[in-house]
């Protein structure tokens, strides 16, 4: 069974704000066709202040869909609509002390229901712009649609590039077969064939001895190449110091306290090790303070 946090279980077994709000003036209905889950969010909004006075949910879905709905209603009660619109699915997952990677889409559904309800209140039409496919990479919770779209829009041709752009495949590497399949399929669309052995575009790993400056530059480059992916998830990372075999970084934004933080660090470490051709350890800067 899933590894649900206590908080998820608690919100599932005793959901808050279950049911429709009486005389609601905002309704958002959202379904995920792919997984069949569906959610109706009803809000009572104070017309003068636009503060959400009451929020209720009705959910047809699994344990984490119900828990995410419950968490969402708790988070947004008392917020203004504009504040509520800033709530991200990561916020919902964080509120629940994290969700298993396969279940992150449940929190996405909550956020979309909120957007739909606000649009409904404001008399606007809400258009969904998020597509979702089957989970490809469990280490980084990346689905096939994201991999596909990223390959297309950036003309990626190798697994390594997919790792660089999406993180998918950057951890345990068990999903490389799946990534190769997507590459094969997408490349075929434009008449190309996927060549597994083709040379990577990244600079070949350094072999001879590097000067200290070269070494730090290379580490910097690797970290720079990872930042866009983290930023997409509202996180970031900066290089703080290189001390012999130890590389200290500062995790920022959503990366702080994220359940994936350690996986992300591991991923960064792997990339640096690969690039330098020597072993280094990537550590959060907090560890340096402890050591020092």
């Amino acid at each position: 069974m899933w590894d649900y946090s206590d908080k998820v279980q608690e919100h599932f077994f005793s959901p808050r704000n279950a049911g429709a709000v009486q005389d609601a003036n905002a309704v958002g209905d959202i379904g995920s066709l792919s997984c069949g889950d569906a959610l109706r969010l009803t809000l009572k909004v104070d017309p003068a202040s636009e503060v959400i006075l009451e929020a209720g949910f009705q959910t047809f879905g699994c344990g984490s869909a119900i828990a995410s709905s419950s968490a969402l209603t708790e988070i947004i009660k008392g917020m203004t609509l504009d504040q509520a619109l800033l709530v991200s699915n990561q916020d919902i997952a964080d509120y629940l002390d994290g969700l298993p990677p396969e279940k992150m889409h449940c929190s996405v559904m909550g956020r979309e229901a909120l957007q739909a309800a606000v649009a409904n209140y404001r008399g606007e039409e809400w258009k969904d712009d998020h597509e979702e496919g089957a989970m490809v990479c469990k280490c980084f919770a990346v689905d096939s649609k994201l991999v596909e779209n990223t390959i297309r829009s950036n003309n990626l041709t190798t697994v390594e590039e997919v790792v660089n752009y999406t993180k998918a495949g950057g951890g345990c590497s068990a999903c490389h077969e799946g990534v190769e399949e997507i590459l094969t399929r997408v490349l075929a669309e434009s008449g190309q064939t996927f060549a597994p052995g083709s040379a990577a575009t990244a600079p070949a790993p350094a072999r001879g001895k590097l000067t200290n400056l070269e070494r730090i530059r290379r580490i910097e480059n690797v970290i720079e190449s990872i930042r866009p992916n983290l930023k997409r998830d509202h996180g970031d990372v900066e290089l703080v110091d290189v001390d012999g075999k130890n590389v200290y970084v500062n995790m920022k934004g959503a990366c702080v306290g994220c359940q994936m933080a350690s996986v992300t660090l591991e991923g960064i470490q792997e990339r640096i090790v690969e690039d330098l051709g020597e072993f280094v350890r990537v550590l959060p800067v907090a560890a340096k303070r402890l050591n020092g």
Binding site: M1, C35, D37, G61, C62, G63, A134
Partner: peptide, 27 residues
Amino acid sequence: EGESILLLLNKLGIAASSGSACTSGSL
């Protein structure tokens, strides 16, 4: 939804299974 059913059954010490997407981790 099946996973929700199973979680509540499990709380009572009853083990069954479901064809729901969510129990298998597929969509």
